[in-house]
Amino acid sequence: MSDFKMKILVVDDFSTMRRIVKNLLRQLGYENIEEAEDGAQAFTKLKQGGFGFVVSDWNMPNMDGLELLKNVRSDPELKDIPILMVTAEAEKEKVITAIQAGVNNYVVKPFTGEILKEKMDKIFERLQAQR
């Protein structure tokens, strides 16, 4: 059911992390992956359109993951894009804030390809069910 042609945006300020996440996504079969260095850049890219999914880090300069999430949810064009938030263990307490702001799911660092797949599958299943 996964659409491997779907354009995914990976947002993280640390390029090693972007690369790791990108590699995991590729292992899962996704090919159309783009990167952004922070929330602000991500938002601009998203506005250009065509993205079906966002994997975003939380802690970033300029615009952090939560702000990005809020901005996306309050943007009429972008509000339905599913977002998976990557967090560190220490930030678990913040997860509730993210959930209230409309994040679709979150994943705790470090994670494997399988965990990522599970999270993504869950998000898409839920979206399917809602439609």
């Binding site: 602000a40 209230q100 702001a101």
Partner: peptide
């Protein structure tokens, strides 16, 4: 959501005026 209410109102407040500024900085980025 028990502790969430103030957060949410903050969300809509932020969402209304910020994106434009953000796009500006995003261009520089």
């Amino acid at each position: 959501a028990p502790a969430g209410a103030p957060e949410i109102s903050a969300v809509s407040g932020v969402g209304e005026h910020k994106p434009n500024e953000i796009i500006q900085t995003a261009k520089d980025n």
